[in-house]
Design a protein around this nucleic acid. Structure first.
Lengths: 214, 214
DNA sequence: TAGATTGTTAATCGATTAACAATC
DNA sequence: TAGATTGTTAATCGATTAACAATC
C-alpha cells in the first residue's frame, strides 16, 4: 500500500533505523509476531506513535494480530534503502576508519567498502580486511572511476571540508562525516554529520542537570 | 540570570553541544561578537530559535549588540558541565576504543581517561597514549576504587549489557555506549546509546527518498 | 463469533516562528 | 540619539497521544 505526496518528517525517519534494529533483535530471539503495544514497551515509545510512524509508509499490520516481525523488518529495510548495495570508500585509515572497516554489520547490510585512503606513507599500500589503503592523492580519480556512492570521512577536522569537496567534485552521492566539524555540501548531496562529541556533552549535561538550578 | 523550575526540553539540550562547537569555531576565526541572526545563518537555525534556546538558561546577550562569543561559549560549556573533570574508563580496547583514546579533544574538555579494559590477552598490559589496558575481570573493582564516573562501552553487542551491569553495580554515574544495541540501566544512571549505524541508515533513506513514491 | 489490535481521525501537547516592546 | 538586536510574549505549526470504528 503506497500513498502519494505524503511528506515524512525527519522525526519519523530517524526512528526507522531503531525499529529496524529492534525488530532484528526480536528475530534473533525467535519472536515472530508483535503488537504495537509490546514493541512500544521494548523500545520506550507509545503504541500510538509506532502505528502512526508505520502508517506513513503503509499498512504493515493486521487487525487483531499485530505485526509479522520478519516481514515488517524487511519492509523497513526496503524503506531505508537496505535492499540495495552501495559502493563506499573510507577517507582516513586511522583507528576510526579501521573500526568501521572491521564492523561486519555494514558489509552484511550491503555497504561494499571498495578502498581506503590516507596521507600517511606508513599506511599507504597496507591492507585491512582485504581493503587496500591508497594514497589520498588518488581519491578523486578513484571515486569517479569506480562509481563510489558513499564517502566516509574519518580525517581530522582540518582536512574534512577539503576531502568533502573532492568527493563532491567526483560525483559522490552521499557523505557520512565523522570529523568533529560539520561539512558543507550542495543541496543535491546527502550528508550526515555525526559529531560524536555531541552525545558525550549531552551526557554530562544530564549528569549535572539537577545542580543547574533552572 | 537563573530561573526556577523551567524544564528544558531534550530538543534544546541536544542543540547545546552544537552551539558550543560552532562558537568554538568562531573563536578560532577571531570572531568575538555575533548576532542570533548571523549565528543562525551559519548553523542553519532561525534567529528566533537561538534566542529561545539560550533564554532557557539566561540572558546572555545584549540588545543592539548581540552575543559575546567567548563569554557565550563559556556559559554553554558550564551548562553542559564542561567546567568539571570526569574520570572515565573505556571498556573494549579495539579500534573504536583506541580512536576515542587518541582523540585529543576529549582530554582538553576535561574527560580524564584513567584506564582501558579488554578480554584479549594480547592487549592486556599494553599501553595506549600512556593509558594501561587492564584485564576486563578487574573492571568492577577498578571502577569502584577509582571513583570512575563515566564508562565508555566499545565491546561487541553480545557483551555490552553485561559490561553495563558491572559498571552500574560499581557506582558508575553515566554510560556512553557504542555497542550497536541499546543497553538498559536504572533510571538514576545517565545513558547515551550512540548506535552509529542509525545515521548511516538515515543517509541511505535520504539517498532513496525520491524513489519511494510516498 | 468474540477478542484483539490495527489504521486513521480528532484532540492535545509541545516546539518553532513571528512580532514587538525593551534597551543597549 | 538612532539603529540594532535582544528577551519575551503571542501565534502558528507540527508532532504526539488518545480514541474508536474497521476488521482480522
Amino acid at each position: 500500500m503506497q500513498r502519494n505526496s505524503i511528506k515524512v518528517s525527519m522525526a519519523v525517519v530517524r526512528r526507522l533505523p531503531k525499529y529496524y534494529r529492534y525488530l532484528g533483535e526480536l528475530i534473533q530471539n525467535d519472536i515472530l509476531r508483535i503488537s504495537s503495544k509490546e514493541l512500544g514497551k521494548i523500545m520506550g515509545l507509545t503504541a500510538s506513535q509506532i502505528r502512526q510512524d508505520l502508517n506513513c509508509f503503509g499498512g504493515f499490520g493486521q487487525q487483531g494480530y499485530g505485526y509479522n516481525v520478519v516481514e515488517l523488518q524487511k519492509e523497513i529495510g526496503n524503506i531505508l534503502g537496505l535492499n540495495k548495495t552501495y559502493n563506499c570508500v573510507i577517507v582516513g585509515a586511522g583507528n576510526l576508519g579501521q573500526a568501521i572497516t572491521n564492523y561486519e554489520g555494514f558489509r552484511r547490510e550491503g555497504f561494499i567498502l571498495k578502498a581506503m585512503f590516507d596521507v600517511n606513507p606508513r599506511l599507504i599500500g597496507n591492507t585491512i580486511r582485504d581493503i587496500k589503503i591508497h594514497d589520498i592523492m588518488e581519491l578523486g580519480e578513484y571515486v569517479k572511476e569506480n562509481q563510489i556512492e558513499i564517502g566516509i570521512i574519518c580525517v581530522p577536522k582540518e582536512f574534512s571540508q577539503k576531502v568533502a569537496d573532492t568527493l563532491v567534485e567526483n560525483n559522490i552521492k552521499a557523505i557520512w562525516n565523522f570529523a568533529p566539524a560539520d561539512v558543507n555540501v550542495p543541496e543535491s548531496i546527502v550528508i550526515e554529520n555525526v559529531a560524536i562529541s555531541e552525545s558525550l556533552y549531552t551526557l554530562t549535561y544530564l549528569m549535572n542537570e539537577d545542580s543547574l538550578n533552572l
